[in-house]
Write a protein that binds this DNA or RNA. Structure first.
Ligand code: MN
Ligand code: MN
Ligand code: ZN
Ligand code: ZN
Lengths: 149, 149
DNA sequence: TTATTAACGGATAATCTTTATCGATAATAA
DNA sequence: TTATTATCGATAAAGATTATCCGTTAATAA
C-alpha cells in the first residue's frame, strides 16, 4: 500500500496543477480515498464524509470523483449491478480479486499484463490505452460460511 | 467463431434441459446471439427481433437474457456507462478488445489466464469462479479519423 | 386431438445509480 | 479586502434494468 500521506499530497498537487480548488469537503474525500485499501463505494465515502461535514451532498461526492477520474487520481471499478467501487490509493489499472459473497475487493500481487498487451498491439493494430482484469470468486471466509449451511 | 448452427442447438438443448420453453421470440433472440460475433447490445438485439416479430417487447429481450445468463449460455459484458453487450457465440469468459472510439468489441486470440488464476488461488485461498479481462483503446480506423482532424 | 397448466409475452410502472441544473456560497488571486 | 468563478447543496432528470400484472400460449399427457 502506498503511504496515504504521500498519496494525499499527490492528489492535492494534481488538483492544484489543473486549477481545481481544495475545499474542505473535497479534502475529506481525498483523505478517505488516499488511505482506504478496501475499494469503497460512493455510499461508503458519503457516509464517512458526513461524519465531519454533515451537510455534504451525495452529488458532491460524485462530482469530486468525476474530477479525480479526469486527472487520473482515482481508479473507478464499475460493475453492471449495484454501485461502483473506487481505488484512490492505487489509481493506475491493476488486477482485482473480488468476493461475490461479501463484496470484498482486494489488490492481489500479480505480474503485469505487459507481454499480453504488447502481443495484442502487434496482432490487431489497436492503440491500447488501458485495461481491466477482475477475478471473481469466494474468499476463504465466505467458503466456510457457505459450507456451514 | 463457433458454428452458429451448433451454438443454437447447444442453447436450445440447455434451455430444454432446464425446463424453459422455446417460444418464437426466444428462438429469434437465440439465433441472433448464436450467430453474432460483434457483441450486440440489448437495443441491437431488440431491433433485429422486431423485424420478424414487430410486437416484441424490450422486456422480453431482457428476460431472455436473464435466463441465458442463469444457464451460462451467454456472456454479459457490463460497463459502467451505457448498456451491456453480449456474447452468445462464445459464452465462457474470455478477453475482449474494446475500441472506445466506435464501440467495437472483438475477441482477440490470447493464451488463457490459467497460470495467473492458479497462482492467485494458492496465494489467497480464494475459490476463483470466473474472471474478466478487457483491453481498451482505439482501433486502426479510429486512430486514422482522430489524426485527421 | 384436446384439455390442462405453468411459463411466457407485452405493456408499463418502479427502481436504482449517476448526471444535470441552478441559485447560494466560498476558495483563490489580485 | 474585494472580485471572480468554481464549487456546494438540494433536487430534478436521465438512462438502464427489473418488477408487476394479466391475457396468451407452449409443452405435456389423457
Ligand atoms: Mn485496487
Ligand atoms: Mn467475446
Ligand atoms: Zn467473501
Ligand atoms: Zn474504433
Amino acid at each position: 500500500m502506498t503511504d496515504p500521506k504521500k498519496r494525499l499530497d499527490q492528489m492535492i498537487a494534481k488538483l492544484r496543477k489543473n486549477d481545481f480548488r481544495i475545499t474542505p469537503q473535497r479534502l475529506a474525500i481525498l483523505k478517505i480515498l488516499a488511505s482506504s485499501t478496501n475499494h469503497p463505494s460512493v455510499e461508503n465515502i458519503y457516509g464517512k464524509v458526513k461524519k465531519d461535514f454533515p451537510t455534504t451532498s451525495l452529488a458532491t461526492v460524485y462530482k469530486t470523483l468525476i474530477v479525480l477520474k479526469e486527472i487520473g487520481e482515482v481508479l473507478e471499478l464499475g460493475f453492471g449491478d449495484g454501485g461502483n467501487r473506487y481505488d484512490g490509493n492505487k489509481p493506475n489499472p491493476h488486477p482485482h480479486l473480488i468476493c461475490t459473497g461479501c463484496g470484498t475487493i482486494m489488490d492481489p500481487d500479480l505480474e503485469s499484463l505487459g507481454d499480453m498487451t504488447e502481443a495484442l498491439k502487434r496482432a490487431t493494430g489497436f492503440q491500447i490505452l488501458t485495461h481491466r482484469l477482475d477475478f471473481f470468486g469466494l474468499c476463504p471466509d465466505c467458503q466456510k460460511s457457505r459450507s456451514a449451511r
